[in-house]
């Protein structure tokens, strides 16, 4: 047990560290903005947008409601695709788990289908499903599916058979074992997969919107590009980045709650 004096010192040290971290991040942000601005001065307005103009554009878009409209279109496709891909990617390994022989039969096909460049399917998807939400959802889902599939599969392999044996011995049913040991065993791997999948899912939605859309962030970026509106392209990119950061923060919050028991997470996040 730590004494109050030691605890006080530790709290003060942690507050100091937090302050230093904040200062460091602000300094980095300033350096990045400066670099951006210098690059703009060097490349000129055709190839580059100045930070201030981008900021003004973002304020405009927020003011006239277009930002919210584009955002909601993109988010709809992205969230639906993300959920679909996650559910499929987590469920398939669990199903395969029921039969090792089926797993061996299916695995090479999953690997082979992973090799298919997803975006080359877009023209076909348009033919099959039109230019609505559906093709975008499918592309996003496919992107997420493989990442979650590989992660969940690894998680299942890493499950400690001795824990399962212990649970059976004290009277746990099959569903109970699945809920207690399989689920909790997979969870860290699932979160790692989701963290990896999140920015890719958004990128997939955006790129799909370049190709098939009449609204959304991807459409806005592509439309700006075609009109040589560099400020618009950069404003779109900034929005996407902000979206990724926001979603990642949400995921982190959820992960910290769900994986409180993990020793590594505490050691890696001494500031929090």
């Amino acid at each position: 047990m730590t004494s109050p004096a030691t605890a006080g010192r530790a709290a003060a040290a942690s507050a100091r560290r937090r302050r230093q971290l904040l200062l460091g991040r602000l300094a980095l942000a300033a350096a990045l903005l400066l670099g951006w601005d210098l690059l703009f001065r060097y490349l000129g307005p055709v190839y580059m947008a100045p930070p201030l103009a981008v900021l003004v554009r973002l304020a405009e878009l927020a003011g006239n409601g277009q930002l919210l409209a584009d955002l909601s279109v993109t988010l709809q496709a992205c969230i639906a695709g993300f959920a679909l891909g996650t559910a499929g990617g987590a469920a398939l390994p669990l199903l395969l788990r029921l039969s090792p022989r089926l797993t061996r039969a299916v695995e090479p096909y999953v690997m082979a289908s992973m090799g298919v460049p997803v975006f080359t399917l877009v023209p076909l998807l348009i033919l099959w499903f039109g230019i609505d939400l559906l093709p975008k959802i499918i592309i996003t889902a496919v992107m997420v599916f493989y990442i979650v599939f590989v992660g969940t599969f690894a998680g299942l392999r890493a499950i400690d058979g001795r824990l399962v044996a212990m649970a059976r011995l004290v009277g746990a049913s099959g569903t109970r074992v699945a809920r207690e040991i399989y689920w909790n065993g997979i969870l860290p791997y699932l979160f790692a997969s989701l963290k990896l999948a999140l920015p890719r899912a958004l990128s997939a939605t955006i790129v799909a919107e370049f190709l098939v859309a009449d609204a959304g962030l991807g459409f806005y970026i592509e439309n700006s590009r075609q009109q040589a509106d560099t400020v618009g392209v950069f404003a779109g990119i900034v929005m996407v980045v902000a979206l990724v950061l926001g979603a990642d923060a949400l995921l982190k919050l959820w992960e910290r709650r769900a994986l409180r028991w993990r020793p590594v997470d505490r050691q890696l996040n001494p500031v929090s």
């Binding site: 824990l163 212990m166 909790n184």
Partner: peptide, 9 residues
């Protein structure tokens, strides 16, 4: 058992 097999979560 030899190992404690506690559930880490």
């Amino acid at each position: 058992t030899q190992d404690d097999n506690l559930l880490p979560w």
